[in-house]
Structure formats: C-alpha cells, structure tokens
C-alpha cells in the first residue's frame, strides 16, 4: 500500500516570544490586544525596552506621554526602545 499526501492543512496558534504573559500596563495578555485595539498581532504589536520589559506599544506610548519622565513602569529605569 502506498499513501501519498497531497496536501496537509494544519492548525496552529501564534504567540509572542516574551518573558511574561500579560502586559504590565493594561494587564491584558500579550497575545490579545490593548484595550484601545480591536485586532491582535500586527495591529497591536509589542515593544521591548532596554530594560528587557515589554508592553503593548500603545500602552507604553500612552504611559510615556502621561509621565514627566520617560521611565519603565516596571523597574523605573529610563525607558529606551530596544530595537533588536
């Protein structure tokens, strides 16, 4: 007997490779989106800081706008985007 696979359609779920599950600002899962967004993933990406903490981009931008100093909300170090 010979079995030939013509095509295989698999199912997978995507997730962010991050050191935490939830965004420290909005407390939503990273794989979900920030409260202002509707669609996860490309439309609501994550950003990493130099301090290695990561957040939804919309959350951290909003945070930085509301603060006099540009600090990471988790560790109070100066916030720098890590463009890795």
């Amino acid at each position: 007997m010979k079995v030939t696979i013509k095509s295989w359609t698999g199912v997978a779920t995507w997730r962010w490779v991050a050191n935490d599950d939830n965004c420290g600002i909005c407390r939503m899962p990273f794989d979900s989106c920030c409260p202002d967004c509707k669609l996860p993933g490309d439309d609501c990406p994550l950003v990493w800081g130099a301090c290695s903490h990561c957040f939804h981009i919309h959350c951290i931008v909003k945070w930085l706008h509301s603060q006099p100093q540009q600090q990471c909300p988790m560790c109070r170090q100066d916030w720098k985007f890590n463009n890795k």
């Binding site: 095509s7 698999g10 990493w48």
Partner: peptide
C-alpha cells in the same frame, strides 16, 4: 513576524491523501 512563534495543534486541520492499495 519578528518575536512571534507558533504552537501547533496537531490533531486539528485536514489532510488530502491518496491511497493506492493494489
């Protein structure tokens, strides 16, 4: 997609196969 990965659900999906048996 940078910084993203996949976890597969092996039991889901469908397969189109051809079987030749004699």
């Amino acid at each position: 997609k940078g910084n993203r990965t996949l976890s597969w659900k092996p039991h889901l999906g469908y397969v189109n196969i051809k079987i030749e048996n004699g």
